[in-house]
């Protein structure tokens, strides 16, 4: 479960005031809205990279507002992916497990399981240079899922992909959600993506979050 209670977030001159919403455990929610409204800022606040000026963040019933990003155990896939440039694909997937001092044998098993789920087993020994957009997305997703987080935050993960790769990724994301049951918040501009993936659609506009109800004209939300 992800819950923001009257969260005020300041990022330089920009601020979001009194934002509240709740996503239930196991839900796949999509957050949409015009550019520059602060969707990424909300994700960064949830994963602890931005401090709240006021309000609370509750994850799985626990108030995590004052906790460091490491203590929140959130899988985060930023828009620009930010794969670690000095590591192989295997090292990226092992990273969070290694930090947690998981035994080598279990690390290896988890990496192989994830690689199979994401269809990147053939990439494990590769460095990240030369990976295609879709391959990089899968690696970033695998890295975020490796430590079995409670919550997965995806920031426009499919925006840079071509049509066919994007459709394949839709299927993959649904498959991951079905298999792991991870509560997901996915930021996107694409109504098609939202319709394909979301259990719930949230819209951030003019400092307010509202729910997009079933049957609402999808074109009215696109910018």
């Amino acid at each position: 479960m992800i819950e923001l209670q009257a969260a005020t977030i300041k990022a330089g001159d920009f601020s979001l005031n009194e934002i509240s919403f709740r996503i239930e455990t196991g839900e796949y929610a999509v957050l949409m809205g015009p550019t520059g409204q602060g969707k990424t800022t909300i994700l960064e606040a949830i994963c602890g990279l931005r401090q709240l000026a006021r309000g609370k963040i509750i994850l799985k019933g626990r108030d995590v507002t004052g906790l460091s990003p490491a203590e929140r155990a959130i899988g985060y896939v930023p828009q620009d992916l930010v794969l670690f440039p000095t590591m192989t694909v295997r090292q990226q997937l092992e990273f969070a497990l290694d930090v947690r001092r998981v035994k080598r044998q279990r690390q290896k098993a988890r990496v192989e399981e994830l690689a199979e789920l994401l269809g990147i087993s053939y990439l494990l020994s590769r460095k990240i240079n030369g990976l295609s957009g879709g391959e990089s997305q899968r690696v970033a997703l695998g890295r975020a899922l490796s430590f079995e987080p409670n919550v997965l935050l995806l920031d426009e993960p499919l925006s840079a992909l071509d049509e066919s790769t994007r459709l394949a990724m839709h299927e993959l994301l649904r498959n991951v959600q079905d298999q792991t049951g991870v509560t997901t918040l996915h930021v996107t501009h694409s109504q098609e993506e939202a319709d394909a993936l979301a259990d719930r659609q949230l819209i951030l506009e003019n400092q307010e979050i509202r729910e997009r109800s079933e049957g609402q004209d999808s074109t009215s939300d696109e910018h």
Binding site: C47, G48, L49, S68, P69, A70, R72, A73, I74, G75, Y76, P78, D80, V82, F84, P85, T86, F95, A96, V99, R100, R143, A144, S146, F147
Partner: peptide, 26 residues
């Protein structure tokens, strides 16, 4: 890019860990 260290922190690293594991090798 400091973003790699930020992502490392979401993956379980302290600031010190992120420095040693991600920034230093670069």
């Amino acid at each position: 890019d400091p973003r790699a260290e930020e992502v490392a922190r979401t993956l379980g690293c302290s600031r010190g860990d992120a420095f040693v594991r991600v920034a230093l090798p670069q």
